[in-house]
């Protein structure tokens, strides 16, 4: 190290005295190796709990998995090739995208609206606590609560919808046309609070002087929201959307309790179908293949969102 310091020379350049950083100081192999050793325990634990299952998943997707004595046999990509002709797989994807887009649309727009109201409310803290309650509930419990609310004989919500003349005689979860809305409502009810929370945090960070500058420039409230508040919320919304997208791809507890994917598969979004394939019919090889498609799409979506997030000029606010 001392050598490195000694080798630094001051030279005149650009009209002033300049010292170049010696090359030796730039690569510090010793220090780097030390940090690597420090990280080893974490890396080993991670490898056991995530990498091993991941590779095992790939292995399974290429085999006919038999949990009995026969063992796993190579089946020439049959798990994969059959996916294309699997109507429920394709439909599962379509329903998943529909389901998460609907959830996202309502959660984000409702979340922003409610956060805007809360942000101006005198009772903000109290209201936030109240609004957060659904989120505190285990998804299975939420599913059960709504299952009873939707019940066509004694469900309060069902009664309300019927009294308002929206529903007719049908049951919400029992009808192909409305079951999807049923599970969307539950997800929106449970997870909008998360969006509210994130957006509320974002609203506190919207620079007041930008809003004021825009007002002086001639903007009214609505224009101010769209041209200043919303762009400043952008990074926060990205986080919220990323979290919710990934959750929608994973959380099926409420759906399993509410509809189990029915009626007539109208709510059989891909993760529920995956559950059926793997844990009802125990076709673990096919299940693994489906799970991998889910994983790849989740990763790609995540990468796109993170990429958008990294764009500095859109996400960071100007600081003096």
């Amino acid at each position: 190290m001392t050598d490195a310091f000694v080798s630094a020379k001051a030279v005149f350049r650009d009209g002033g005295l300049v010292i170049d950083e010696p090359a030796a100081m730039r690569n510090k192999p010793l220090a780097n190796r030390f940090y690597f050793y420090l990280m080893m325990p974490a890396i080993i634990v991670l490898a056991c709990i995530t990498l091993y299952p991941f590779f095992w998943l790939i292995f399974m997707s290429l085999h006919k998995v038999d949990m009995g004595a026969a063992g796993d046999t190579w089946n020439n990509f049959k798990n994969w090739t059959r996916l294309g002709s699997d109507r429920k797989f394709v439909q599962g994807w379509w329903l998943l995208l529909k389901y998460s887009s609907l959830c996202m649309l309502f959660e984000v727009s409702l979340g922003i609206m409610l956060a805007l109201i809360l942000n101006r409310s005198k009772w903000e803290k109290l209201l936030v606590t109240v609004f957060l309650m659904p989120m505190m509930m285990a998804p299975v419990i939420a599913g059960l609560v709504w299952y009873y609310l939707f019940n066509s004989t004694f469900g309060w919500y069902h009664w309300l919808m019927q009294s308002l003349g929206i529903l007719g005689d049908k049951s919400i979860l029992g009808d192909k046309a409305t079951a999807m809305w049923g599970i969307v409502i539950v997800d929106v009810w449970q997870w909008t609070p998360l969006i509210i929370l994130i957006v509320l945090a974002g609203l506190k960070r919207v620079p007041r002087d930008q809003l004021e500058a825009n007002m002086v420039d001639g903007a009214g409230e609505i224009r101010n929201f769209f041209s200043i508040t919303l762009p400043n919320l952008y990074p926060f919304l990205l986080i919220a959307v990323l979290l919710r997208f990934m959750d929608n791809f994973r959380f099926i507890d409420a759906i399993l309790v509410l509809t189990g994917g029915g009626p007539a598969n109208s709510t059989k979004i891909l993760p529920t179908y995956l559950f059926d394939v793997s844990f009802t019919f125990f076709k673990l090889g096919r299940g693994a293949a489906i799970a991998l498609t889910l994983l790849v799409v989740t990763i790609i979506l995540g990468m796109i969102l993170v990429k958008l997030f990294e764009n500095p000029s859109t996400t960071k606010s100007s600081e003096a």
């Binding site: 002087d209 009214g220 400043n232 003096a320």
Partner: peptide, 19 residues
């Protein structure tokens, strides 16, 4: 309201729109 006063203001922290 500010928009009807026909004035322009320069803020201490410039308040430029970052996006």
């Amino acid at each position: 309201p500010p928009k009807d006063r026909n004035l322009a203001m320069v803020f201490e922290n410039y308040a430029l729109y970052p996006h």
